[in-house]
Nucleic acid binder design. Structure first.
Lengths: 125, 125
DNA sequence: GCGCTGTATCGATAGCTGCCTATGAAGAGC
DNA sequence: GCTCTTCATAGGCAGCTATCGATACAGCGC
């Protein structure tokens, strides 16, 4: 579940809608405007040093889950700022969160990362 | 050559410096601040619908090269705006350009794309 | 030389984004 | 109930960015 949010609360992009359809590698065929806008949001989410480090921290953490308090303490930024960045990453579909008791844990969405990786892969041709 | 720019004119990132060193997959180990900043610039370059479509158009074009005039005519944007986006992509190391006579041709830098794809690939673990 | 065409740069402006402080909401423990 | 802790949201402000028109630069043809 997605914690305290009404489902559909945020403009979640990423895997919604397209299902398991294999992505056609960005450079294989011209992108239409709508697809470009959706994909750009995900790349934009990754286009910030803090968010990139957040993804890295979450992914590298044993167990695959990290408490927000651990993420906040890893940066010289205020807690609301970290919370904001986590929100952007979650809206992009790159991470997911779950509340357990007092704490909220974040983990990666591997499928979303793989999808973007596949987009950037250049066909042998 | 890089056309009309003095080499080092722009803050080119991407493959400069790191050589052929295999990138350690973002989620394998926590990213330090400097590396995050460099990678974020590349993702940020991809985090715009117009630039994403530009990359797609260049990559999907037969011959691997596209004249600026063709790119400009593919969008409902002014020529300076397209030129600006191409400059951002080139500064990120994602594309390269070459002038031949009156026209300037742009092509992808596959190694840069592959590098980012590798970063996003999640290890099996 | 002169003009014409294709690109890049300049300068300005509207909109977005990252950061903060202050505040609100949700649980746990009393 | 109240209080404390953890996290999210709201509001505001400074800096960046996407866009434009105007202009400069680079080749080609004359």
């Amino acid at each position: 579940m997605s914690v305290q949010h009404v489902p559909g609360d945020l403009p979640i992009v990423g895997l919604t809608g397209s299902g398991a359809c294999a992505q056609p590698a960005l450079v294989s065929e011209p992108l239409d405007g709508a697809a470009a806008a959706g994909l750009a949001q995900v790349f934009k989410a990754l286009g910030d040093p803090v968010r990139l480090r957040l993804v890295s921290l979450i992914g590298a953490h044993a167990g695959g889950e990290v408490c927000v308090c651990d993420l906040t303490s890893a940066f010289d930024l205020s807690q609301p700022t970290i919370s904001h960045h986590l929100k952007v990453l979650r809206a992009a579909g790159l991470i997911d969160s779950e509340r357990r008791g007092t704490w909220v844990y974040y983990r990666l969405v591997p499928a979303a990362l793989e999808r973007m990786a596949g987009l950037l892969s250049v066909p042998v041709a």
